[in-house]
Design a protein around this nucleic acid. Structure first.
Length: 164
DNA sequence: AAACGGCAAAATG
DNA sequence: CATTTTGCCGTTT
């Protein structure tokens, strides 16, 4: 697992890669805009440079309200069966649109598991690229967020989504 | 086995 | 209406 920092206009995101692809993408932790790259372990991930670049580009595109043209391979093998169902359902939500937790649950084939769907979203390891922020509460009101709710707002507003 | 969520619909006042 | 209760379900302890 290799971790690297990814600089954006909103701070430095932290990405973790496995041999399968991008496994984790975290929001800038301390509002620390000082961007020093973190290098760890000298293991060989030949595609790392490519993936890193793809991630960076995709990330910046979304942050600027554009649909990403290309995504790096995502490694979601860490999640449970259910979680992965949810996460893949999330990826099918186009930029600028939103779904309710119930809809996501249904899309994942567990119409009943509304609440569990919420937890699964919170467990999503790849922020932004896996749009957990496009899931709102039933009424269209902003729901919760395990990371800063602020990010949820920011991302949505960048995508031109209004919340009540 | 029990508690805990990024929820939602029904019941209550 | 604004609140509280009551189901539901996959994780986590």
């Amino acid at each position: 697992m290799q971790r690297t920092g990814i600089e954006t206009s909103d701070g430095v995101f932290t990405a973790s890669f496995t041999e399968r692809g991008l496994a984790r993408l975290e929001f800038p932790s301390n509002g620390q805009t000082s961007g020093r790259e973190i290098q760890r372990s000298t293991s060989v991930l030949p595609k790392l440079p490519v993936w890193q670049q793809l991630t960076a580009t995709a990330l910046r595109q979304i942050l600027s309200g554009k649909s990403p043209t290309k995504l790096p391979p995502l490694d979601l093998s860490a999640g449970t069966g259910f979680q992965r169902r949810i996460w893949s359902a999330l990826q099918r939500i186009p930029l600028g649109e939103t779904k309710s937790y119930s809809e996501v649950a249904a899309a994942a084939g567990r119409p009943q598991a509304v609440r569990a769907a919420g937890s699964a979203c919170g467990a999503n390891p790849i922020a932004v690229l896996v749009p957990c922020h496009r899931v709102l509460s039933e009424g269209g009101g902003l729901g919760g967020f395990s990371s800063d709710l602020r990010w949820k707002r920011i991302l949505l507003s960048r995508e031109g989504v209004a919340v009540t």
